[in-house]
Write a protein that binds this DNA or RNA. Structure first.
Length: 570
RNA sequence: GGCCCCGUAGUUCAAUGGAUAGAACGAGAACCUUCUAAGUUUUAGAUCUAGGUCCGAUUCCUAGCGGGGUCACCA
């Protein structure tokens, strides 16, 4: 039983019936856990301060009589709160042995046992660039996948590659018009296509009279016409190969990938059915629409007047495909930028009207903006993932080379890449999901303070201590861990399970970046004030080594959720 | 204009309706004969405005101001 569960039990025993929630305490000298007497004051009709005073006395005397609560030392009233002081030794023993026992599985729960969840991301487009918006998407998706898994869900990360829309036609049109006999640089095929797409897109904006040619290509594409199909297949594969490389680098492991060209026709069938059932109607100019104004969702366009499908058409087909591939889905999550929030409200409503009733969740994360404004491929103001990685990597490489003159080139490169990816991922995960990020390159190349490298550095320092310690493993005397910094660190390690639940409840991995930083900082405080190895007391060294090892375990668990790989030395 | 999201130190971000609003970067001042200075200590510095609900509001409600997104043949 955890210390907070025990306190709740204790409060129940003295007859508290209101909702029992404990909170943390602002300063360590004021105790370790607090119970606010606000609800109680309403029930008893006294002021919260008065209630706390009486309750503290009652609880404290109950404590002294009852020997089952040796983890709780005393209860003291502070204003409207009753604060509980925990016994350092018992707390240390409980938490440290719990972490030692469960290791990588420490803090997991079974909330989602038996439930199958799909999470769909990054849902990017072939023939287009991969920019830092996609990077945020992948970082969030990876972390959410891990968070769901730790909460007991069976979660399947799936991708939906949009390989069949107008963007493909635009790119192929540009390729034929401006680059007909050119070959892409080797290994850069995907990037090359993305550049051509941007070029064609900009060109067509200022030459609308030529748009017809791109529509023409799209028609041939949808008809799988022989004049365009081989070029489509070849370039599509370039994109897919390019994405796979990035996905692998970022640690994204997909369970399955759906392609728009495979699902679009099924989407058209659903539109036909909705029309037949008189749910959808024919609107202005002969397009097929669905009036959702009564739901405050305006009008959704299901099929163009020329018969061609839209993004929405394909998304209906995707739902069909998902339910064929995966049975008994309890929840389907889609992760996109927040500019699609409205679109997904419409889509989910239409799917409901079409007879789909599992839980559908759209997570719309905030846009990634540049200090000078919104990213836009039309004006060429886009920061590509590759460029950010190269920039951060170059900076880490410089630092690592300076610090480790004795390392060989491969070791420096390998370590630098891991640190660079840690810096990037952490940077993109530390903001709350629904908030806009203003991406500043100078911030991303700083590796101090609330950053990924700071966490890795603490893990590396712990590794260094553990390497130097040559002690036999034995059960330490946890009573020896009584310094304030030790106690604070241990209590923080005990909160890990609750943090995983919170991240899950809010679909928000940022609480984990914050928590891992708190743990790393708390360890750093301990490290600065107390030496682990330079000590007369062998038993104290053993106990502190155990604390170091479990701190490392919790930090590595956090990093693993964030899909960040630690380094042994840095 | 309708709808959605956001407004907190110079900057980037925290804070289940609760104790003195926390960090990081930047600026100023310290600390490497001491387990890795990518570290630690320390000084200055903030809740957009006006109402309301509440014992108590950064948090909830209303209005306004400011920023972003979105609103049928785009993805």
């Amino acid at each position: 039983m955890s210390s907070s569960e025990l306190i709740i039990k204790l409060l129940q025993e003295v007859g508290i019936k209101s909702e029992l929630k404990l909170s943390s305490v602002p300063k360590p000298e004021m105790g370790d856990l607090a119970f606010g007497c606000f609800d109680l004051s309403k029930v008893q009709g006294k002021s919260p301060v008065e209630c706390a005073k009486e309750l503290a006395v009652e609880v404290d005397s109950h404590l002294q009589e009852n020997k089952t609560y040796k983890i709780i030392e005393k209860a003291v009233a502070f204003g409207p709160y009753v604060n509980f002081y925990l016994n350092s030794g018992v707390v240390a023993k409980n938490i440290i042995t719990d972490i030692q026992k469960h290791g990588k599985k420490y803090g997991q729960n079974q909330t989602g046992k038996g439930k199958k969840v799909l999470i769909e991301f990054p849902s990017n487009n072939t023939h287009k660039e991969l920019h830092i918006g996609h990077l945020r998407n992948i970082c969030l998706g990876n972390a959410l996948t891990n968070i769901f898994r730790l909460n007991g869900f069976k979660i399947k990360p799936i991708n939906y590659l949009n390989d069949f829309g107008a963007h493909v036609a635009k790119c192929l049109w540009g390729l034929q018009k401006f680059h007909k006999d050119k070959k892409p640089p080797k290994g850069q095929e995907q990037k090359w296509l993305g550049e051509i797409y941007a070029e064609a897109s900009i060109y067509l904006e200022s030459h609308p009279e030529e748009k017809e040619q791109s529509f023409e290509i799209q028609k041939r594409l949808e008809a799988r016409d022989k004049s365009i199909w081989p070029l489509f297949k070849k370039t599509r594969q370039w994109s897919i190969n390019g994405f796979d490389k990035v996905f692998k680098e970022l640690g994204l492991k997909l369970d399955y990938t759906f392609y728009e060209q495979d699902v679009k026709d099924n989407g058209q069938k659903i539109v036909d059915k909705l029309l037949k059932d008189k749910i959808a109607t024919i609107g202005d100019g002969g397009a097929i629409i669905l009036d959702l104004t009564s739901e405050n969702l305006d009008i959704a366009l299901l099929r163009k007047s020329n018969g061609a499908g839209l993004y929405l058409t394909s998304d209906l087909g995707l739902a069909v495909a998902k339910n064929i591939k995966y049975k008994n889905i309890s929840e389907s999550i889609t992760l996109t930028g927040s500019e699609q929030n409205f679109y997904f409200k419409q889509l989910f409503k239409i799917l409901e009207l079409a007879g789909y009733h599992y839980k559908m969740t759209h997570i719309g994360y905030g846009l990634v903006m540049l200090p000078e404004g919104k990213m836009s491929s039309r004006t060429g103001k886009v920061i590509l993932y590759d460029d950010v990685r190269d920039l951060v990597y170059a900076k880490v490489l410089e630092e690592t080379t300076k610090r480790h003159v004795d390392w060989n080139k491969n070791k420096i490169a390998d370590s630098s890449l891991k640190i660079a990816l840690a810096a990037i991922k952490f940077e993109f995960l530390k903001h709350e999901a629904n908030k806009t990020i203003i991406f500043d390159a100078t911030m991303a190349t700083k590796f101090e303070g609330f950053t990924g490298p700071y966490i890795l550095y603490m893990v590396a320092r712990i590794n260094s201590i553990l390497r130097k310690a040559k002690m036999k493993k034995s059960t330490p005397h946890f009573d020896l861990l009584k310094e304030a910094e030790e106690k604070q660190l241990i209590l923080l390690l005990g909160e890990y399970g609750g943090v995983i639940e919170k991240a899950f409840d809010n679909y928000n991995p940022s609480v984990l970046t914050k928590y891992s930083f708190d743990v790393a900082q708390s360890f750093s405080n301990f490290y600065a004030k107390h030496s682990v190895l330079n000590n007369q007391n062998k038993e104290l060294i053993k106990a502190r080594l155990a604390l170091c090892a479990v701190t490392k375990q919790v930090l590595e668990n956090c990093l693993s959720i964030l899909s960040i790989e630690p380094v042994d030395v840095m």
